[in-house]
Computed example of a mutant assay.
Amino acid sequence: MQTLYPEIKPFARHELAVQEPHVLYVDESGTPDGLTVVFIHGGPGAGCDGASRRYFDPNLYRIVTFDQRGCGRSTPHASLENNTTQELVADMERIREHLGIDKWVLFGGSWGSTLALAYAQAHPERVHGLILRGIFLCRPQDFHWFYQEGASRLFPDFWEDYLAPIPADERGDLMQAFYKRLTGPDQIAQMHAAKAWSTWEGRTATLRPNPQVVDRFSEPHRALSIARIECHYFVNNAFLAPDQLLRDMPKIAHLPGVIVHGRYDLICPLDNAWALHQAWPNSELQIIRDAGHAAAEVGITDALVRAADQLARRLLDLPLEEA
């Protein structure tokens, strides 16, 4: 089984001002003249960390990571102002141009897969290929499954904690009820809602219980950006037209892609990946039989590292057997 590459430090860090009031944190690591890959984090609202750059061979890749608007080291924290999918796509183009990149590989999981597809469909000429994990198509049924009814039936104990901030008479539309509190003036109610929302996600992200994942999601600073930004996006259908990502797949049908998805992913069920694969004949679907949603699960990590190695060697015309 492949594991993450050893920890490395960035060779460059950038603070990139985009549309007010946002300033993005961007860093680069690996080989400056290598094949460029951009790591697109999930959430939206989660941010990157030191592990984000460790899926890639630093001798082959120039690795770009960035924190999307309102999260991680980007500022202002948890801001919803001028924060939409289209603006995040524009930010990626701004980063590409700022760093002088002609084309890059897109690597994204969960919401990161959503944003990767949206970017690729808007700028297919700038993409070598895609490596996607935990596909999230942002269809109405996908939001309903996780935030209203579906996953709730598999985790009734965790669901009870998720419901706790919401009065019984507002539970007919839980996303709207959370949005009311996450954007309201009562900071105590806001944090209570943020912790409940984000902890629900952390508890259900892995097939086997993983306290480290739960702690990462429930840490207050991160929980606030995850909950506020996710809820903002999801009550607005991720700022996408119905079935937009599947409808626009012909725009990128020629691009190579690897789809990695846990068989027991209960945040983004496998039908997301299946539907994408059916619409993308040039993709390879890898169903990880003993995994849920999180990239940190052993089988998913293995598949992602192998996919990144193999794609780099293919694009750089290196022997595949060395991967």
Results as ranks from 00 to 15, higher is better:
Asp243Asn: 12
Ala253Thr: 10
Glu219Gln: 11
Asn59Ala: 14
Ala294Ile: 13
Asn282Pro: 02
Thr75Leu: 09
Gln190Trp: 10
Gly30Cys: 09
Ile135Thr: 04
Pro6Arg: 07
Tyr264Pro: 05
Asp243His: 06
Thr85Leu: 14
His123Gln: 15
Leu80Tyr: 09
Ala307Val: 03
Leu99His: 10
Leu224Arg: 09
Ala308Glu: 01
Asp67His: 12
Ala303Met: 04
Ile95Phe: 04
Ser29Leu: 09
Leu115Val: 13
Ala294Arg: 11
Pro21Asp: 08
Thr183His: 11
Thr84Glu: 15
Leu304Cys: 08
Leu224Trp: 04
Arg171Thr: 07
His14Trp: 06
Glu297Ser: 12
Ser113Ala: 08
Ala308Arg: 00
Arg73Phe: 10
Val260Trp: 00
Ala196Asp: 15
Thr206Met: 15
Phe217Gln: 01
His277Glu: 12
Gly50Ser: 14
Gly134Tyr: 04
Met1Pro: 08
Leu304Ala: 11
Ile287Glu: 14
Phe239His: 10
Ser52Lys: 03
Gln121Ser: 14
Gln212Met: 11
Ala193Thr: 06
Leu270Met: 13
Val305Asp: 02
Trp274Tyr: 13
Gln212Asn: 09
Met175Ser: 13
Trp145Gln: 00
Asp265Pro: 06
Glu201Asn: 03
Gln310Pro: 10
Ala273His: 08
Gln278Met: 07
His22Asn: 08
Leu24Lys: 03
Glu230Asp: 12
Cys138Met: 06
Leu245Arg: 01
Ala151Glu: 09
Ala312Pro: 00
Leu35Trp: 00
Ile166Lys: 00
Val214Lys: 06
Pro209Ala: 09
Gly43Ser: 08
Ile267Glu: 07
Arg222Ser: 03
Thr183Leu: 05
Val64Lys: 05
Gly47Met: 15
Ser113Glu: 02
Pro211Gln: 07
Ala116Gly: 11
Val305Gln: 02
Trp159Thr: 02
Trp104Phe: 11
Lys180Ala: 12
Arg139His: 02
Gln68Thr: 07
Ile226Lys: 01
Thr84Ala: 14
Ala17Glu: 08
Tyr25Phe: 10
Ala279Met: 08
Tyr25His: 07
Phe155Leu: 11
Gln141Ala: 00
Ala227Leu: 10
Leu132Trp: 11
Trp197Ile: 10
Gln244Lys: 09
Tyr179Gln: 15
Ala78Pro: 03
Thr85Asn: 07
Ala120Cys: 01
Gln19Ser: 10
Val26Trp: 02
Leu245Ala: 03
Phe155Val: 02
Glu93Thr: 05
Gln244Val: 15
Pro124Arg: 04
Gln278Gly: 00
Arg73Gln: 13
Arg54Gly: 05
Ser198Pro: 04
Val213His: 01
Phe178Asn: 00
Tyr147His: 02
Lys180Gly: 08
Leu316Lys: 12
Gly134Met: 11
Asn59Arg: 14
Ala296Arg: 08
Glu81Val: 14
Glu93Arg: 15
Gly42His: 00
Glu28Ala: 07
Asp265Leu: 15
Ile8Asp: 02
Phe234Trp: 14
Ala164Trp: 08
Val105Phe: 01
Ala46Asn: 15
Ser113Gln: 02
His22Glu: 15
Asn59Met: 15
Leu246His: 02
